[in-house]
C-alpha cells in the first residue's frame, strides 16, 4: 500500500512552492495556505484549482 504522504518543496532561489499529492498530482503555488487547500482537496484537485485564489 502506498503511504499517504503530502510533500511541499520550497523551490530554491524562488518564492514558489511545489506540492505533490500522494496520488501523484502536482501543483505550484505562491503561499502555503493555497497549497494545503489544493493538496487536501484530494481527490478533487481540479475543483480546488477552480475555487482557489487567483494565481
Amino acid at each position: 500500500m502506498t503511504a499517504t504522504v503530502y510533500r511541499i518543496v520550497w523551490l530554491p532561489g524562488s518564492d514558489r512552492l511545489h506540492g505533490t499529492c500522494h496520488c501523484g498530482a502536482e501543483h505550484d503555488a505562491d503561499d502555503p495556505v493555497e497549497m494545503w487547500t489544493w493538496l487536501l482537496a484530494h481527490p478533487d484537485h481540479a475543483a480546488a484549482d477552480q475555487d482557489g485564489p487567483p494565481r
Binding site: 503511504a3 499517504t4 504522504v5 503530502y6 510533500r7 511541499i8 518543496v9 520550497w10 523551490l11 530554491p12 500522494h22
Partner: peptide
C-alpha cells in the same frame, strides 16, 4: 534557506 515539508497522514 528553503524547507521541504512532508506530512505522513497514516503515521
Amino acid at each position: 534557506t528553503p524547507i521541504t515539508t512532508e506530512v505522513d497522514e497514516d503515521a
